[in-house]
Simulated assay, not measured.
Amino acid sequence: MQINVNTDNTIEKHQGLDEHVESVVQSSIGRFGEQVTRVDVHLSNENKEKHADGGNYCMMEARVSGYQPIVVHEHSVELHQSIKNAGGKLARALDSALGRLADKNKHAPVAVAVEEDIDPLSDKHLTDS
């Protein structure tokens, strides 16, 4: 799974932030393995001047094989908390979406081949006497 971290000019991007995001994403949705090909994480502080209003924003978009992208949003006072909460939301959204997809595939009609009782020598049904 590829994880891309994007920030706007209100967030200082550094190695520790990238590692934190990757850790949260892996722990939240790592169990989906090969089904999730890429996760794009966008971080910003929508109200840079006002620190106590929950302006730290995290958006996560998961690209899922054979399914539409799944997007979650989270606002919080602390950036790390918004990342953690968004990871939890993304896990629940993937559980729901992939669960529906699995149920849909599980309940799809399956063609059942039924052999008829035919006498190979006479091409008559054995039940026809």
Rank of each mutant, 00 (worst) to 15 (best):
R100P: 04
G88M: 13
F32S: 10
L98D: 04
L98H: 05
R38C: 13
K84H: 15
G87E: 15
Q68N: 05
M59T: 05
A91I: 10
T37Y: 12
G33K: 14
T37E: 15
Y57D: 02
Y57H: 03
N56V: 01
G87Y: 15
L79G: 00
D103I: 00
K84P: 02
M60P: 10
G66W: 02
N45M: 00
V36C: 13
Q68L: 12
M60K: 09
E74W: 09
G88D: 12
G30H: 14
D103Q: 09
S76F: 06
K104T: 01
G87H: 15
K84Y: 12
H80D: 11
S65Y: 10
M59R: 14
D95A: 02
G55H: 06
E34F: 12
K104C: 03
A102N: 13
H75Q: 00
N47D: 04
S82K: 04
E34Q: 15
M59A: 09
R31E: 11
I70E: 04
S96D: 09
N47H: 06
L98T: 07
H42P: 13
D53T: 01
E74T: 11
D53V: 02
H42I: 15
D53Y: 00
G33W: 15
K106Y: 08
H42V: 15
V39T: 14
V64F: 09
E78G: 01
G54A: 05
S44I: 02
K50R: 06
A97Q: 07
S82D: 07
I83T: 01
S44H: 03
L98R: 02
V64P: 01
I29H: 07
M60S: 09
I29E: 05
S96W: 12
E49Y: 04
Y57W: 09
R100S: 08
G88L: 14
E78Q: 03
C58A: 11
S44E: 01
S96F: 11
G54N: 01
N56P: 04
D53H: 00
N45E: 05
E34I: 05
H75A: 01
G33D: 13
G30E: 13
D40Y: 14
K89C: 12
A97M: 05
L43H: 07
N45P: 07
K84I: 14
Q35F: 05
V39Y: 12
K89N: 14
R63F: 14
V72T: 07
C58I: 07
A93H: 02
N85F: 11
R63Y: 14
D103L: 09
D103A: 11
H42R: 06
A62G: 11
S96Q: 13
S65Q: 15
R92C: 10
S44L: 06
E78M: 03
M59E: 10
F32L: 11
H51Y: 04
C58H: 06
T37W: 13
N105L: 02
T37L: 11
K106V: 06
V41S: 05
P69W: 10
K48N: 00
A93K: 01
A102Q: 14
K89D: 12
V71K: 10
K48R: 01
G99V: 02
L43N: 04
V77A: 01
G66D: 01
R38W: 12
A102I: 08
L101R: 15
S76I: 06
